[in-house]
Computed example of a mutant assay.
Amino acid sequence: MRARRTDPGRRDRILDVTLDLIAEVGVAGVSHRRIAARADVPLGSMTYHFEGMDDLLHAAFTRFADRGGERFAQRLGAARDRPEAVTAVVDLVHELSDPRTDAERVVMYELYTLAARDPRYRTITTAWMARSRRELGRHFAPDVTRRLDALVEGLSLHRALDEDPFDRTLTEDAVRRLVGDA
């Protein structure tokens, strides 16, 4: 009898490679074959771990959103008071729009596009936004957290896609005005 090869990290590797490929070629360019080749796994293991491409994409985007939520939790959890929380929010805007995070941003936009069309993916973005607001709620009033969460997304998007991105001063001023610290 042939020994069975074990690869306990295979599912995780497939998910990570899926996210990398989405960043490179978009959801439309991702296939089981490309993922398996890049992850160095047998093509058959794709259907062993995931029911189909939709299941794989859903799991990959859920992982991505969880990581984004962790970033919020770390940044806002480290803030000891409201001024540090304002700084953490400004830092998040600039991290999310930094050219070094282009791959993450592309994955985020791909998720938003799917969520705009498919309620199943909208559950991922809804959970992500709820978590962001919970983390913001550590330091800001509930009526402020929803607006602040939207401001973070909007400022990040504008800063990332503008050919002449604004600086931290504008971001900090916008955050302070919204939270009532202007």
Rank of each mutant, 00 (worst) to 15 (best):
V41I: 03
D81S: 07
E172I: 02
A150E: 10
T169S: 15
V175A: 04
A130R: 14
D173K: 10
R10I: 14
T18M: 01
T126V: 13
R80I: 07
V17T: 15
D81P: 02
L170N: 06
F140Q: 03
E51M: 12
R4S: 13
H158L: 10
E24R: 09
T126K: 14
Y121Q: 02
A160M: 02
G52H: 06
Y121L: 03
E110C: 02
D149W: 08
A60T: 05
R75K: 11
R133C: 15
M46F: 00
T47Y: 07
R67G: 14
Y109V: 09
D81C: 01
Y112W: 11
R147M: 12
L161S: 04
L161H: 05
L96Q: 12
A3T: 14
F72R: 01
R131L: 09
L136V: 11
T145S: 11
E95S: 11
D40V: 01
V106E: 04
R10F: 06
Y48Q: 01
E70I: 11
R105M: 06
A88C: 03
E163N: 00
P119N: 11
R34H: 08
E153W: 10
A150G: 09
D143I: 13
T47L: 13
L155F: 06
T6E: 12
M46P: 03
T62Y: 00
D149F: 10
R4P: 02
A130Q: 14
R67A: 15
R80A: 15
L92F: 03
V144G: 05
V106Q: 07
Q74R: 12
A73F: 00
T126F: 07
